[in-house]
């Protein structure tokens, strides 16, 4: 029993790390531009599929490096030509636009790569169990958690200490002033969007290694990321991280005791959090 619980706890952490990676990207975009990027899950799927296509040529490690960058590049293009037109308009419109994009990406990946999940070759070094007692501790799982942790730390370092990061944080508070101080906000928002999509692409490559990748992977992961953001509080990146880990662990543990409530439990947590703190755990009055 303890082993089962440990297994699910660990599994929950992995799932939570996914949610957090995806939700952090979403949060980043939303904080600076007020855009809810419904197509975020679509970009995640694209990251996975690009890696799948690249692996025969550049190997797993190469794909892990290249695929998220390519995904981010697609994100830059989408922001430049579509989303940029909608800044300053009712948020309804960017919501609908990215919603349509999500449809297009999901259907497009189905058209190109087929409706079935595609298998994925992970280096053998990563797939062997590390311990016979704790069979679930495969190298790949540890690797995923480690990589997710490194990415999150890197993100916070970028935001805290680089010029780009400082500008993003400042823009989140008051974009107009940042603009007046001589920062090109068009480029700032573009790069910020790309950074968010990079995280989605990375999560996509990692998820594909664990679960395989199929066209609907994006639409099934987008809701948990929304819940992570709401639980953590809109506008707070640490909150988003905590929210993702919390609901990942909670739904994984629920699957042991009450399997049919696996998905529902995260919404129950969300309802409870909103009841006590209407703006989420770390949310503050103000922008949202």
């Amino acid at each position: 029993m303890t082993q089962l619980i440990l297994f699910n706890l660990f599994n929950g952490l992995i799932v939570g790390a996914f949610y957090a990676l995806m939700a952090l990207g979403l949060s980043l975009i939303m904080n600076l531009t007020g855009v809810i990027n419904f197509a975020h899950g679509g970009f995640l799927a694209l990251g996975g599929y690009l890696a799948y296509t690249l692996i025969p040529y550049v190997g797993f490690w190469g794909a892990l490096l290249v695929a998220p960058v390519l995904t981010a590049f697609l994100g830059l293009i989408v922001e430049r030509f579509l989303i940029r037109r909608l800044y300053g308009h009712d948020p309804l419109y960017s919501l609908l636009l990215t919603f349509g994009l999500a449809f297009i990406i999901e259907d497009g990946t189905r058209y190109i790569w087929g409706a079935q999940a595609v298998p994925y070759e992970v280096p053998a070094a990563l797939t062997t169990p590390l311990s016979s007692d704790y069979f679930f501790l495969t190298g790949y799982r540890l690797f995923m958690v480690a990589l997710a942790a490194i990415s999150v730390i890197a993100l916070f370092v970028i935001l805290k200490w680089t010029r780009l990061g400082m500008r993003i944080r400042a823009g989140t508070l008051d974009l107009e002033t940042v603009s007046v101080l001589g920062v090109n906000t068009a480029i700032l928002r573009n790069l910020n969007f790309g950074l968010g999509i990079y995280l989605a692409g990375l999560a996509g490559v990692l998820a594909a290694g664990q679960l395989g990748v199929e066209p609907t992977i994006g639409s099934s992961l987008i809701m948990p990321s929304f819940v992570s953001i709401i639980v953590g509080g809109l506008g707070s990146l640490p909150g988003t991280l905590l929210g993702g880990l919390t609901i990942g662990v909670a739904s994984s543990l629920t699957s042991v005791f009450f399997p049919s409530a696996t998905e529902a439990v995260m919404y129950v947590i969300m309802a409870l959090v909103l009841l006590v703190r209407p703006r989420g755990l770390f949310g503050q009055e103000g922008r949202f």
């Binding site: 579509l82 960017s94 609908l96 636009l97 994009l101 999500a102 449809f103 297009i104 259907d107």
Partner: peptide
């Protein structure tokens, strides 16, 4: 592939 076309309708309506 009507799903992409419906998605395209969303995009075109918004733009």
């Amino acid at each position: 592939n009507w799903m992409s076309l419906v998605g395209l309708v969303f995009v075109l309506v918004v733009l």
